[in-house]
Each structure stands twice: as structure tokens, then as C-alpha cells.
Amino acid sequence: MVQTRTVEIAVGAFVAAGLGALFVLAMKVSSIGALDVADGYELVARFDNVGGLKVRAPVTVGGVKVGRVVAIDYDMDRYEAVVHMRIDRRYDRFPADTSASILTAGLLGEQYVGLEPGGEERYLGDGDEIRLTQSALVLEKIIGQFLYSKAAGGGAK
């Protein structure tokens, strides 16, 4: 019977270690606690071009992560991309004239949505739309414009 006891203790320790490891993966490696936007409110923004923005990309204000992109659609009536974002409840007082732009982390990093608070008294609520948006910068277009303006400038001289 002593033997079964040690076996049971060893198995118990093994299962505990395994579950503990899963817990560490969830909490420490992926940090589930850092930002849980399951109960948040939704904002919508329309862009001409979302570039490489992906679902689950972060939404930040002044460099602080406040939410995530939950869905990206395309509106066939207005020919615009529609980005749905879920924002944490704690950050619930963005002025109505807040602007949204699609930015890139570093030179080649992932794209994310950056919010810029405005100055109005009214606040955005669940399901509201952000009116002022700035599309993603597409590298090819920038280079193209740059070359075009160079060429145009050169021609004028």
C-alpha cells in the first residue's frame, strides 16, 4: 500500500505541475490579466485603406493599449473599410471628435489603431462612430507620391 501512496503522490504532483505550467503560459507568458476587453464597449471607424491592419491588433491612446480590433469589414455602399474596435470599460470618456489613424510600430512592425482625443464635451458611447480618420500609409503610395512630386518639381524649374 505504501507503493500505491507514492504513485498517487507522484501523479498528483505531475498533474499539478502540468496545470501550473498551463497557468504560467496563460498569465505570465501571454498575460491574460494585462488587458481583458471582454467586457468593453465598441467603437467603429471608417477608413479608405486599412493597409495591413489585422483583427486583434491593439488600439492605443498616447502609446497606452486601451483595446483591440475585433472585426474588419468593407462597406459596399460607401466603398470604405469599417473597423470595429472593442475598448476597455475603464477608458470610457473619449470626446466625440476623437480621431483614429492607422499607424505602424517601428519601420516594419505591425500596424495598430492610434486614437487622438479631441476637445468636445460629448463622449463617445457604445457603437458610436469615430468621424475623423486617417488611413494607413502605404509605402508604395508614399514612394510613388514622392517620386511624382520630385518629377513635377523638377519639371517646373
Binding site: F14, G18, A21, V24, L25, V29
Partner: peptide
């Protein structure tokens, strides 16, 4: 079936 995910999780955590 039960041991495999636990072992993999332990492997990952120890590896990190």
C-alpha cells in the same frame, strides 16, 4: 491523452 498537453506545457514553461 491527458499527459501529453501537461508535458508540453511543462516543456514550454521550462524552455521560456
Amino acid at each position: 491523452l491527458v499527459a501529453m498537453p501537461l508535458l508540453a506545457a511543462i516543456f514550454s514553461v521550462v524552455g521560456v
